[in-house]
Design a protein around this nucleic acid. Sequence first.
DNA 1: TGATTTCTCCATTCTGCTCT
DNA 2: AGAGCAGAATGGAGAAATCA
Length: 236
Amino acid sequence: MLSVFSRMVAPKASTMLALAALKYPTRRTLITTAIRLQPAAGATKAKTAKTTATKRAPAKSTVTKSKAKTAAKATKAKKTAKPTKAAAPKKKKVAKKPKVVKPPRLTKEDLPPKGPGTPYIYFYKKYMAGVQRPLTMEAVNEHAKAAGATWKAMTEQEKQPFHEEYRVAAEQQSKALAEWKENVDPAIVRRINKHRTKLGKPKVHAVEIASIWKSLPEAEKQVYVKQAAEKKTAMA
DNA sequence: TGATTTCTCCATTCTGCTCT
DNA sequence: AGAGCAGAATGGAGAAATCA
């Protein structure tokens, strides 16, 4: 757990606060860590089994295709090769690249719960439920336009149930978000924030640590300042 | 024999459109 | 940005094929 921060060069006092907050791992953190340690479990295994089954009996066309590609490649190489007197010197072997172990993709469960949307969303959901399937892209667009027109034509009283549905969903979302923030693995937050930074979006969670830091009494702040200084000295 | 490429499957993301 | 939809595009992973 603490290894998450082990790569930090110069620890800040606010970091020490975050560390203190992370000192006691939550249930989810432990579960997530366990999952990280078993990357080949579950879906991957099933996938592998399926893939293996396919690979063990590869379609003739696949093999032929592959061989044909290779043959084409060889022919191309022959064609492009310049008629030199001596054979070209062998290329020096490129240094082995260290195998990078990538973390598993973020799932919906890893991400913070989405917002409640708007009252219109709930109206549109109901509207589309009554639409005949299957739908083409054009049909979806047509229905979206029609739904918008219908929504505009509705009275406030008619819209009321959808406003109420939105209100309930907003309450639930708020609770779910608070729970997510409490239990989320900091490693996941870092990955989410890395992606959000790319998209130019504000970071999650870390903002809260900053606000907690700001509201902290000076005496308490000094505890973390001291810890940070000590760690800095130890790392020097 | 180890490294790289190719192939396949599956999951995820994006697109277009609406309103708040 | 959130929901809904279908389909295309993309990315990741593992195994097999190929290359040096």
